[in-house]
Computed example of a mutant assay.
Amino acid sequence: MTEVHGTVAEGFEAVREEFAAVAEEAGTQLAAYVHDRRVVDLWTGEDVTGDTLTGIYSSTKGAASLVAALLTQDGVLDLDRPIVDCWPEFGAAGKDRITLRDVLSHRSGIIGVDDGLSADELADDAVIAQRLAAQAPHWRPGMAYGYGGFVTFAVVGEVIRRITGRTLQAHFTERVREPFDLDVYLGLPEDREDRYRTILASLATPEEQAAFWANVPGPNSLLGVAYGLNTDPPLDQVAFANTRRVRERGQASGGGVGSARGLAGMYAAAAFGLHGRDPLLTAATATEFATIHTIGGDLVRGASSAFGLGFEAKGQQYPFLSARAFGHAGSAGSEAFADPITGIAFGYTRRRFSFNWSYPEHDRLVAAVHRAAVSRRTGKAA
């Protein structure tokens, strides 16, 4: 069993035991809040502490979605206004009716570009947006959905920049990260680089990796376009977060950096409030962004999943959570969400990829936190 560091509140001892049973030795972190109180703060790994930062990949989308929700709440963004109203160039090739709601719910057909985006281009949302402006959708907007892994929030960010004159990253820093002193960054400052720990490749054998890649669609498939496989060389996802340019710019679809404390704290701040501050989101805004907009088979990834606006619908993934739970996982194995009904905010990071992007420990850890929270509230075993 892996050596575990950190603390849990009374009643959450079983979470520590579950974490020890499933934690990755190379480094993992787990944090959880019940409303505004942190009740779990654990970590493993020789070079990892509770303050360690690492790449959070698509958990970045949760941070970016929070910015979109705040600006919608403010009346700055209109989710149903055609994007061309503020970004005329985006209307090329049949995209003139696409709205932010389409993009946030992965129904726009905008998942990448036909001739590929290099790793260097994918580090910069402004470059991605420029390339996407001329790109035709990969299906008729609104008729189906497919996950836009590396490009979704470049579109959202360009709309925000054109309407407000400021970047999505700047809004996140000033509205979310700094007021709540959160270790989640869309743009990691140079003076915090010493806390970053690299993402590590899978330990899968060559035979296991060959068997996995033999079943992956080709580079010019929808999955290939969405995940940068239609470039030469194909995008190396492990190297992506370990590139200083990616961390510095904080690409809003997958370039974020954070800790489990930071992720759990971000969702607690969004749904419940922290440090005596009110929640970032009103109940009405949280409900709108958590409400399922997209469900069923994903044209890009093949599997069935469910999305609200930007956020994954976590109640569909973990049925013991409420229908209003919202959050986002990431490729290296991060997971984070809030459940406004049960009062849980959850954050998890890991440094080592799974070769098949499968992280069964999520189910066990989320269930353990939920059981402890329910037992503490009701005095009965969940």
Score class of each variant (00 low, 15 high):
128 I>C: 00
130 Q>M: 02
131 R>T: 09
131 R>I: 15
132 L>N: 02
133 A>F: 05
133 A>W: 05
133 A>S: 08
134 A>V: 13
135 Q>D: 14
136 A>N: 06
140 R>P: 12
141 P>M: 01
144 A>D: 14
144 A>M: 10
144 A>E: 09
149 G>A: 13
150 F>V: 14
152 T>R: 12
152 T>G: 11
152 T>I: 08
153 F>P: 03
153 F>R: 06
155 V>P: 00
156 V>I: 11
157 G>N: 11
159 V>G: 00
161 R>F: 01
163 I>N: 04
164 T>H: 03
166 R>C: 14
167 T>N: 09
168 L>R: 01
168 L>M: 02
168 L>E: 01
170 A>S: 15
170 A>L: 13
170 A>V: 15
173 T>D: 08
174 E>I: 07
175 R>S: 10
177 R>S: 06
177 R>P: 08
178 E>W: 03
179 P>C: 09
180 F>Y: 14
180 F>H: 08
181 D>Y: 02
181 D>E: 04
181 D>R: 05
185 Y>N: 03
186 L>K: 04
187 G>Q: 12
193 E>K: 14
196 Y>C: 04
202 S>L: 08
205 T>Q: 06
206 P>A: 07
207 E>G: 04
207 E>T: 13
211 A>F: 06
212 F>A: 10
213 W>R: 09
215 N>R: 14
216 V>E: 08
216 V>Y: 09
216 V>I: 13
218 G>M: 03
